[in-house]
Design a protein around this nucleic acid. Structure first.
Length: 974
DNA sequence: GTGTCGCATTCGCCTTTGTAAACA
DNA sequence: CTGTTTACTTTGGCGAATGCGACA
């Protein structure tokens, strides 16, 4: 192993390995760091590689890690500069952690705070700090091939979930803003004025079909183009108006315009967006696509303004041809490719600008732009974009989250930013109606620079970056002429695709966009319509947030949305349609299996949903109550049913592992040890020869004791549904304690029971004031259900003493266990007593507590007085000693010792008279108050209290003693 | 290049009912 | 003498989740 240090000018200024034994210390340190690096895992390469220099490939047997460590100023400069120093070379292959953290406790914060290299242990002089250091070491030959693994901890997961949730909320807010902008009458009117007369004839057609929309969509597609311009510094409303003016805009704006157009034409339309949130799983966003992939995605797909559709003729039948484009416009979409590659290659969406929270924006924009160019230069040079240390700590999800947060904030603060940033374009929009795609290039360039700087920092979700080309926004139009009852039709006017809902998933997947949340916005509300676009729900379900939380979030938005889009449907049609759906379910083998919770039970029956809808929207609906089938359902409930049906008719996965946590299906081999199939059937199909069962047949088993905690007990004569062998550890205990083999066998197993073998818990009743107890003389109170009838649980501290004093029968309440001293210890909380004694005990407890509190107060006061006494005695003694021996510094130490000795001896009656102090103290049997005129303490004088100067206040029993100097002391005689 | 499967590894849940000495 | 507090020894086994490599 070799360790060398280099100064910043390149000359070796010192070598650790020269320091004799220090070499060993250093080696140990390096090895420690290596171990640590191995633990941390390869996924954090980007966080650390700023400290690394590329390996020398010439060394064969030896893996050489060379690092150039920046000094403090360099490190700061690096963090200021988005790209970092050009001296940095990034080693992608192997790396080590902060090799220069020589302290023993190299904790995470040291690393993550970006601490600069510490001093060489040999040389403590700051002037001699190393600016560069080269370390070479041997790597164990066996470990070369294995990548270290570090999994996310629970904390990581929690943080990731929080980020995910907040990101979702931001995107929801964003979607609502866009939806609101789509309702703008001015924009709608402007759009209408652009539509050719022959196309506007379809306005208001009640039973429109998707085919009828084709000409309109084609026209829109031909007239509105995507341009990768983001005007984040203005409100979305303004941006939308500008996009309408120029007929060019971001995919988001163009999609919003299409929605506005449909609404202008009196169609019921929604703005639909994929909420491309930060991953729910930690570190999932860190592994960006490879540079090749980035090139492919960035340069290949998002390259023309007519995204993804080569020929308008393909309307209605085209798919998303995601790989068939080339870069053709320099100003427009090549920018995206650059941005994408910059981001993807190095994970470098311009470092500390990213951390600046994007709050002020305009004056920062120039910095960002320069950073972008710097990043670009870096890419040209190295093919890598070295992140700064602080940047490295940011996960991509965090960055996206921050950007979205900033966007949501900026979008919601309409008006404020408009004033400041609007000067860029708004005047043009307002005053110059002739602006179109032929806008002077200078002006475009300005916008373009603003956009590129902003988007280069990771604005992927709403604005497209890595996931360029992915269908993120489109419209849904309600076509009453479709499907008997009408249906929501996917309309991607951006790409001139109608009714292509089945292609969205594949197109998104091709662009590495996870289709986890597809949300439709209307009426300032929102509805999750992911099911419509997702064919393999089991794949995305684990990537979605807890459904309870998500449903709760969406609940109010759903009401708004259904209020805006909820038309009425003739129930007769609906019934026929639903029957067809039911038949589909039956055909797929999903219905009517004998399980207790058959999936078919989850299907909302037409009658039921219709009635519910009637209750909810009865006032608005056209009610025809004369016949059974003439109930009115809303589009909303109909759509709910459609989505629900989709959820229940998911095709069987072809790979076994998909069944592991599948919501609908299960394979026996993937059941856990506490799960069982009950009933064992029906078999819905086969996967690799294994029968597939409905998930509803999977029952969770628990031991008898565990069911007791839930207030359930096993019915009599029930045999265990499953018997597990006890762990080896417990068996050992059994073997050591028991010699009888049969006993071992009976205790060496765990008997498990299923829900169907249970009944409500029947505990013995409390009789004659006696609490039924278990064999340990206590009551296990896991929940209220575990309390014997006729008893109550009093969770009060020290209440047992009251019950004991009143001679009332009680039992300690054991509420759980904790691990203490390496063993499980029961936790007791309060007592269980018969209900009839509850009031008496509570009353006595209150009295007892009152008394206890009073006693405690008294005790505290006594303690306080005692401490005052000690304080005052020490002051007095100190003063006394001062007066005896003067204030000579040489004897200070001995006086201190004497003080302490005197403190120990105090109080004694003789010394009380000599006390000089302020305040009140209480001695044994008397309280004393000292009144000291100012300056008394500094007077070199011993007080003398003469009898004749005393006075006594009989009313208060206070005797006042006075010295001739004016000092007085009050003594309360008890 | 992608999907599937098996193996290895890591993380985190589940387990679950003292005692003797010192001190007040 | 009795009741209370404190120190002692400070889990660890196992299943689920996950990552990775091999293979089709």
């Amino acid at each position: 192993m070799k360790v060398t240090c280099e100064s910043d000018n390149g000359n070796p200024s010192g070598s650790i390995h020269d320091a004799g034994t220090l070499a060993g210390i250093s080696q140990e340190g390096v090895n420690k760091l290596l171990r640590r690096a191995n633990r941390r895992g390869s996924s954090r390469k980007e966080e650390k590689n700023e400290y690394l220099q590329k390996n020398d490939p010439k060394t064969n047997e030896q893996v050489v890690h060379t690092m150039i460590v920046q000094n403090a100023s360099m490190a700061e400069g690096c963090s200021r500069n988005a790209v970092g120093s050009s001296q940095l070379e990034v080693d992608v292959g192997s790396y080590v952690d902060n090799l220069f953290d020589d302290s023993e406790d190299m904790n995470d914060s040291d690393w993550e705070d970006g601490s600069i290299p510490k001093l060489d242990p040999v040389d403590n002089s700051p002037k001699e700090r190393m600016k560069g250091l080269t370390i070479e070491f041997d790597e164990p030959s066996g470990s070369a091939g294995r990548k270290p693994v570090r999994r996310a901890s629970a904390e990581d997961k929690e943080i990731a979930e929080l980020v995910h949730k907040v990101h979702l909320l931001c995107l929801l807010a964003r979607g609502r803003l866009i939806d609101n902008a789509c309702d703008d009458p001015l924009i709608q009117a402007s759009l209408l004025s652009l539509v050719p007369t022959h196309l506007s004839k379809i306005s208001g057609v009640s039973n429109i079909t998707s085919n009828a929309l084709s000409p309109l969509v084609t026209w829109f597609h031909n007239n509105f183009h995507v341009r990768s311009l983001v005007r984040a510094e203005r409100s979305f409303h303004t941006a939308l108006a500008f996009a309408l003016e120029t007929r060019e805009g971001t995919p988001e704006e163009i999609a919003a315009l299409s929605v506005a157009l449909f609404r202008a034409l009196k169609f019921t339309a929604r703005f639909v967006s994929i909420l491309d949130v930060a991953s729910l799983k930690p570190e999932a966003d860190k592994c960006e696509p490879s540079s090749q992939e980035a090139n492919r995605v960035g340069g290949g797909i998002f390259s023309t303004s007519t995204l993804m559709v080569a020929n308008p003729k393909e309307v209605s039948s085209s798919s998303y041809p995601v790989k068939s484009f080339s870069c053709s416009e320099k100003d427009g979409h090549c920018e995206n490719s650059l941005r994408s590659s910059c981001k993807s290659k190095g994970g470098c969406p311009t470092s500390n600008d990213t951390q600046s929270r994007y709050s002020t924006a305009v004056d920062e924009v120039t910095d960002r732009t320069s950073n972008l160019f710097a990043c670009q230069a870096q890419l040209d040079t190295y093919g890598q974009c070295a992140p700064t240390k602080s940047q490295g700590l940011k996960r991509k999800g965090d960055l996206e989250f921050e950007m979205q947060l900033a966007m949501a904030i900026s979008a919601t603060t309409v008006g404020t930013l408009e004033n400041s940033a609007g000067s860029l374009d708004v005047s043009n929009f307002n005053g110059n109606n002739s602006l179109d795609a032929s806008t002077p290039s200078k002006r475009w360039k300005k916008i373009h620079r603003v956009e590129s700087a902003t988007s280069s920092q990771g604005l992927s979700t709403a604005l497209g970056s890595r996931k360029v080309g992915s269908p993120l926004f489109w419209a849904e139009v309600y076509c009453g002429g479709e499907n008997l009852t009408g249906k929501w039709v996917h309309v991607d006017a951006l790409n001139a695709i109608i009714d292509g809902e089945q292609k969205v998933e594949d197109a998104a997947a091709a662009c590495k966009t996870a289709l986890r949340y597809v949300v439709a916005f209307a009426g300032r509300g929102a509805k999750d319509v992911t099911r419509r676009y997702c064919m393999k729900w089991y794949k995305i379900a684990p990537k979605r947030v807890n459904s309870i939380w998500w449903d709760a979030v969406l609940a109010p938005l759903r009401e708004l949305e259904s209020g805006a889009t909820g038309g009425t449907i003739n129930m007769e049609k609906l019934h026929n349609n639903a029957s067809n759906e039911q038949e589909k379910i039956k055909a797929s083998g999903m219905s009517e299996y004998p399980g207790t919770d058959s999936p078919s039970n989850h299907v909302i029956l037409p009658e039921k949903s219709g009635q519910e809808a009637f209750k909810e929207y009865g006032s608005k609906s056209e009610v025809e109550s004369s016949t059974k089938h003439s109930l009115v359902a809303t589009r909303n409930s109909l759509e709910d049913m459609e989505l629900e049906t989709r959820a229940l008719t998911e095709p069987l996965p072809t790979n076994q592992q998909a069944y592991k946590n599948h919501a609908l299906y299960a394979l026996e081999r993937w059941l856990t040890k506490c799960q069982i199939l009950h009933p064992r059937g029906p078999i819905l199909g086969y996967c690799s020869g294994h029968p597939v069962y409905p998930r509803t047949c999977v029952q969770t088993l628990k031991p008898r004791e565990r069911w007791l905690r839930e207030g359930l007990q096993v019915k009599g004569n029930e045999i265990p549904a499953k018997v597990l062998k006890r762990s080896a550890k417990l068996k050992k205990v059994q073997v050591s304690e028991e010699d009888d083999y049969e006993e071992i066998d009976s205790k060496g197993t765990i008997e498990l029971y299923g829900k169907w073998q249970l009944e409500p818990l029947c505990l013995p009743h409390a009789v004659d004031g006696i609490v039924p107890k278990n064999e340990r003389g206590q009551v296990d109170v896991w929940s209220e259900k575990c309390l014997p009838p006729g008893t109550v649980h009093l969770r009060l501290p020290r209440v047992f003493s009251v019950a004991k004093r009143l001679e009332i029968d009680y039992a300690p309440a054991m509420v759980g266990f904790e691990f203490r001293n390496g063993r499980a210890a029961p936790i007791f909380d309060g007592i269980v007593v018969c209900s009839e004694f509850k009031d008496a005990i509570l009353e006595a407890y209150a009295e007892e507590e009152e008394r206890r509190v009073a006693e405690e107060k008294k005790r505290n006061e006594a303690q306080a007085i005692s401490r005052w006494y000690q304080l005052l005695s020490s002051i007095i003694t100190r003063q006394k000693l001062k007066s005896y021996y003067g204030d000579g510094s040489s004897s200070q130490a001995s006086r201190n010792i004497q003080d302490k000795n005197n403190e120990i001896n105090a109080p004694d009656e003789s010394s009380k008279d000599d006390r000089q102090s302020t305040g009140l103290w209480k001695g044994d049997g008397e309280d004393t108050l000292c009144n000291i005129p100012s300056g008394t303490l500094v007077e070199d004088h011993e007080h003398v209290f003469l009898r004749e100067n005393e006075s006594f206040d009989a009313e208060n029993s206070v005797r006042t003693k006075r010295c001739h100097c004016g000092f007085s002391i009050q003594v309360e005689e008890l």
